[in-house]
Structure formats: C-alpha cells, structure tokens
C-alpha cells in the first residue's frame, strides 16, 4: 500500500470514530471495562505468582548431623550432600549457632541450654536448584551416614507446593478466560457499530473499492477504539498499583518477600493493556465485517 493511502486511511478512521459519536463511546466503554478487569487481574496474578515463587524458594532441606560426629566426618558428609543431584548450596550451622538463633528469637531463658546442655544438632541447610526437588534431596540425604534426620517441612511444604501450583494454574486459566471474554465483548460491540454501517460498506463496494481498501479504515478504527479503551484502565492500574505498592511494600519487605517494583512493571503492564486493546479491537473489526465483503 502506498504511504499516502495509508495516511488517508489513518485520517479517515480517526474522523469516522469521531463522527460515529455515541456508537464509538459505547465501543470504547466496553473495551475500558474489560481491560480494567484484565489489568487489575494481571497485576494481581503476576504478584501472587511472584510471592508464591519467593515462598517456594524459601523451602529448604535441613540435614541434622548425628551428635558426636567428628569434624572430618562432617566435612565428608558436606561433600556427599553437595554431590547430590539438584543441590545448589550447602550451609553449615553449628548447634551453638542454632541455639543462638533461638535465644535471639524466643528470649534469654533458652540460654540455660548453652554449652554441653545444648540439645540441638549441627545442621546443614541445603538449598535446591528447583524447589520441587526439595523432597527428593531430603530423602537422599536421609540415607547418608551420620545423618540423624533430613527434614523439608514435611506435609507443610507439600501443601505449599500444591497451593502454588494451583494458584498458578487457575490464574493462567482465569486470565485466558478473561481475555476470551474481552475478545467476545469487544468484537460484539464493534460488530454492532459495523452492522449500523452495512449500507456504508455496500456503497463503498459499489464505487469500486476493493475489499482490502474497505477493510483498512474499519481495522484502524477498531485499533483506535482498543487504544482509547485502554487509557483509563492504564491510569487506574498505575495509580492503584502505586498505592498498593507504597502501602503493602513495607509489610511484605519485612517478611522478606516483595511485590514487583512499580518500574518497569507498570510500563510493561501498560504496554500489554494497550497491545491487547489494539489487537482485539482491530481483529474484532475485521472478523465482524467479513460477512459484508462478499462480492
């Protein structure tokens, strides 16, 4: 297509959008409502997914060493643990350090267990490459010599993994469903605006317009509708997320978890909303007008 023809289509589509008045407002509103839902849900889902992954990564294997194990044997054990598949890091914590942590968290009365009275074991803290491998690593570590116990949080960790899986699976499913609803709602609204202009398309054909020439202004008008419809959702999501991040950010940070920082997260979310609006708007137009383009 010649550049001046494309420029003409662009100009005409914008003009037509303005002249269609309330019909355009209705179509833009439909896009706005849908994209608002999509935007809020995307921000929510991505953050839930992020925190779930952070929580999941926190799950680690604690390998308790038999009391009375010699230093050399401990070093050997550490090497053996490191050699297990899926093991990322191994950190040693002596029984004394373990007790100090308890004293720090629960109070000085625990100091009575200091020295020889310390009932705790020396521990290897094992992080795995894949959080899902935690259980397997724990089971393998349990079998090694001088290991008193290898724990991974047991059923709690299993439950956590299952919950995270469920959240992610349902989240993806729900997003797809929401996008499907968006396509349906937007293309239906655009279909109504095009139906009201069936005569116009008829006249275009009769003056010798090719199908692609007729399609372009409608496609662009759909894209404008999508783009305009994404502006309010962008604004609401940007402001809303900014507020949530400012307020909830501190709480989550204290727990060692964090939401996506506003930049560049909001930038990409805005780009995604605009892109979804434009693509769905343009596709909705093209699909809706197909039946009018029979020769």
């Amino acid at each position: 297509m010649k550049p001046n023809v494309f420029k003409r289509h662009l100009k005409d589509s914008w003009k037509s959008l303005r002249r269609n008045g309330w019909m355009s407002v209705a179509a833009v509103s439909a896009v706005t409502v849908t994209l608002l839902l999509v935007g809020i849900f995307m921000a929510l889902l991505m953050n839930v997914s992020r925190i779930s992954t952070q929580v999941e990564n926190d799950v680690r294997v604690r390998v308790y060493v038999d009391r009375g194990t010699k230093k050399a044997e401990e070093t050997k054990l550490e090497k053996q643990i490191k050699a297990l598949p899926n093991v990322k890091t191994v950190k040693y914590r002596s029984a004394k350090t373990e007790l100090d942590t308890i004293v720090g968290s629960y109070g000085s009365q625990w100091k009575m267990f200091s020295g020889d009275k310390n009932p705790l074991n020396n521990v290897f803290l094992v992080d795995t490459k894949d959080p899902k491998a935690t259980i397997k690593v724990a089971k393998q570590a349990q079998k090694l010599k001088h290991v008193s116990e290898a724990s991974y949080g047991g059923s709690t960790a299993k439950k956590l993994f299952k919950t995270v899986d469920t959240i992610q699976r349902w989240g993806i499913g729900f997003t797809i469903l929401l996008l499907f609803v968006a396509v349906f709602l937007i293309s239906n609204t655009i279909r109504i605006t095009i139906l009201s202009r069936a005569d116009e398309i008829g006249v275009m054909r009769l003056v010798g317009a090719t199908n692609s020439y007729i399609r372009w202004p409608f496609l662009l008008e759909g894209a404008w509708t999508g783009l305009l419809g994404s502006l309010i959702p962008m604004l609401v999501v940007d402001i809303g997320y900014g507020l949530v991040y400012a307020n909830a950010g501190l709480t989550t940070a204290a727990n060692g978890y964090s939401l996506f920082p506003t930049m560049p997260f909001l930038f990409w979310l805005d780009v995604a909303l605009a892109a979804i609006g434009i693509i769905i708007g343009a596709l909705g137009s093209v699909v809706s007008m197909r039946r009018f383009l029979k020769i």
């Binding site: 269609n20 005569d199 275009m204 003056v207 010798g208 317009a209 020439y213």
Partner: peptide, 24 residues
C-alpha cells in the same frame, strides 16, 4: 441516493476517487 451520511458533499464525491487511489 445511497450517500455516506457521515461524509460531507465534498467527501462523498472525493471518496469515489480515493477508492481508486487517485493522487490527492
């Protein structure tokens, strides 16, 4: 008549020329 209601008199007539990609 079958004129395009959203176009002016000038635009209705010019449209038939634009369709066949006549230079502006």
């Amino acid at each position: 008549f079958k004129l395009l209601p959203r176009l002016t008199v000038y635009e209705n007539v010019a449209y038939a020329m634009q369709v066949i990609e006549t230079p502006d």
